[in-house]
Nucleic acid binder design. Structure first.
Lengths: 191, 191
DNA sequence: TTTAATATATGACCTTTATCATATATTAAA
DNA sequence: TTTAATATATGATAAAGGTCATATATTAAA
């Protein structure tokens, strides 16, 4: 028996990780299968041993990213829910995020998903609902945010990041991110 | 001299209009030149008599849409600034808008623009700043919204529409739109 | 009714790219 | 050190699509 069981699995994860990075940066049509594979030191030939096609990879990489997202991280024990929520907002509305460090698919793939298949949309929806639930859960322990407030905050921060990516002036971007950070914190009860 | 001066101009506008509709619906790569032309009763051959290429059309259609956008419409005389702003929000956060009736490029092309050239991004930025200015102007006459509030509201409504397009459950979409309508109105001083 | 200028259509080209068939390389076990 | 199973690479194919050269159609003026 050649190769250990974990080898293919590791390669697969490498592809998924790299694919998510590329897809969020350039969109489904902006990346070639070749590019996807060379980006992790492989060639296109090996691709179909791992995935049935480009669309399948797109969907899988989305699911992969969802499960390893920062928002689904569990809160460290030594800080309060409120403080943790503040940190999540800080990270989400940061230049690092806008520049593609651990990109959130909700912001980076917002319009890209529209032209993808149903499965991609369902995954997107699941991630979106997960985000709302996460924020809702954290707020419930210290305040009493209603659904309107949660939904408007997620739209705000997703929108802010999506918009920021297209603005080239960093000053404008910073202002936008700071503004949304303040308003989102206020809506969520002084975070 | 064949053809009247206005003929080509009318055709050009027809192409621009139709192109904007298609680009917002399916993204730059999701539409072919063939499709763009057949959508207004022409064939691809005629295309290059009007535009230097697909990218050029994308940029021009974006500018065209910007100049004919609802947000740049002037307010009717018989209603207040506040009421008019309310109507703008109603329209923006409506199912019609989400379904592609007079689509706002800020929401519909948010991530699509990222892979386009500098010119497209500049146009996007201009439209974005115009939207902020418009809302700012209307609010100043009855209230005293600061920049943070304006910027967070535009992110919110743009984000809401972008997200809504990917959610298939209409109930969820309606809830989201209504929530953002309420919160945006509140932030803008009870609109 | 011609005609010249312009608009539009047709056909072809060439590049890109997803996909697949086949060949080669790799590695754990015998 | 073989060997069999699996992973990866190479080469080929075919389709799609942007672009352009050329042909045809249209129309205002002569």
């Amino acid at each position: 028996m050649p190769y250990t069981k974990e080898h293919k699995d590791k390669t697969r994860k490498r592809i998924l990780q790299s694919a998510f990075q590329l897809f969020t940066a350039k969109g489904f049509d902006g990346v070639t299968v070749n590019e996807l594979m060379e980006n992790c030191g492989l060639t296109r030939g090996a691709f179909y041993a791992h995935f049935s096609g480009k669309s399948a990879l797109y969907n899988e990489s989305l699911k992969f990213a969802a499960s390893s997202s920062k928002l689904s991280e569990l809160k460290p024990n030594n800080i309060s829910d409120k403080a943790w929520l503040g940190q999540l907002l800080d990270g989400y509305l940061s230049l690092n995020h806008v520049n593609g460090i651990r990109p959130c698919p909700l912001a980076f793939l917002a319009t890209d998903i529209v032209t993808q298949d149903q499965e991609a949309k369902e995954t997107y929806t699941r991630v979106y609902e997960g985000m709302n639930k996460t924020i809702m859960d954290y707020t419930q322990t210290y305040s009493s945010c209603n659904e309107n407030e949660i939904l408007s905050v997620t739209s705000m921060i997703i929108g802010a990041v999506a918009i920021s990516r297209t603005l080239k002036d960093q000053k404008t971007v910073s202002t936008l991110l700071v503004s949304c950070r303040l308003e989102a914190g206020r809506i969520l009860g002084g975070v």
